[in-house]
């Protein structure tokens, strides 16, 4: 069985579980994904499937090298290609498609995406430092404080947490539940939040 799909985050909403409690939901357009290439242990050193994410608005142009790659599989061009580890190469061919129905409702999945960029963030936001008092004569607000001793060691220890660029990195949320899936619209509705902005690409793996 295939381990995952490529998807696109559509947005968030809410829903109700069997008890009538409201739950946060993320809507993902997942698949259909076409097999572009099969990688085998003998040839590539590991067994995997390279999938292309088929979107409504197709891709017209690609680099020349990629055109050859797509031509080999005989499938239409896609913008996004991702690999998933997969044993049992004999069962699938290039050009085969996978849909959301590989995930069942109630199943736990991992979702990987690129988080929203936060720009240059201070130490309070980036590393959850507590910061100082806002008032009562306090002159220490959101500064990082001491970053080390003076003459010994005369340098700042490596890896010290400081301000800097935050976000826009690969983030995985683990064990989120599939709330609803719909093959006609290629929709996967997941309980809870998923990294990245609306319209961002995500990978959905089997937990």
């Amino acid at each position: 069985m295939l381990e995952g799909l490529i998807g696109k985050k559509i947005g968030m909403t809410q829903g109700f579980d069997e008890k009538g409690n409201s739950v946060p939901l993320t809507v993902i357009k997942a698949g259909p994904c076409t097999v572009i290439q099969r990688k085998s242990k003998e040839k590539d050193g590991y067994a995997a499937l390279q999938l292309g994410f088929v979107e409504e608005k197709g891709v017209k142009r690609q680099r020349k090298a990629m055109l050859g790659h797509f031509k080999k599989s005989g499938s239409p061009l896609t913008r996004v290609l991702r690999e998933f580890r997969f044993e049992g190469q004999a069962e699938v061919k290039e050009g085969d498609q996978f849909f959301v129905d590989i995930f069942k409702v109630g199943e736990k999945v991992h979702v990987t995406g690129t988080s929203k960029g936060k720009g240059f963030a201070g130490v309070v936001k980036r590393h959850h430092f507590r910061g100082g008092k806002a008032s009562h004569g306090s002159m220490f607000h959101r500064a990082p404080g001491s970053i080390g001793a003076s003459s010994y060691p005369s340098r700042v220890v490596r890896g010290l947490r400081m301000g800097g660029r935050m976000g826009h990195e690969r983030v995985t949320v683990r064990n989120v539940e599939v709330f609803q899936s719909d093959k006609d619209n290629n929709l996967l509705v997941i309980k809870g939040a998923v990294p990245g902005p609306n319209g961002g690409y995500v990978l959905i793996h089997r937990a």
């Binding site: 809507v27 357009k29 609803q180 929709l187 509705v189």
Partner: peptide
């Protein structure tokens, strides 16, 4: 956005 609408309408 119509996909969001679709998900919501199903539960309303």
């Amino acid at each position: 956005m119509n996909l969001m609408q679709w998900v919501e309408d199903k539960q309303m």
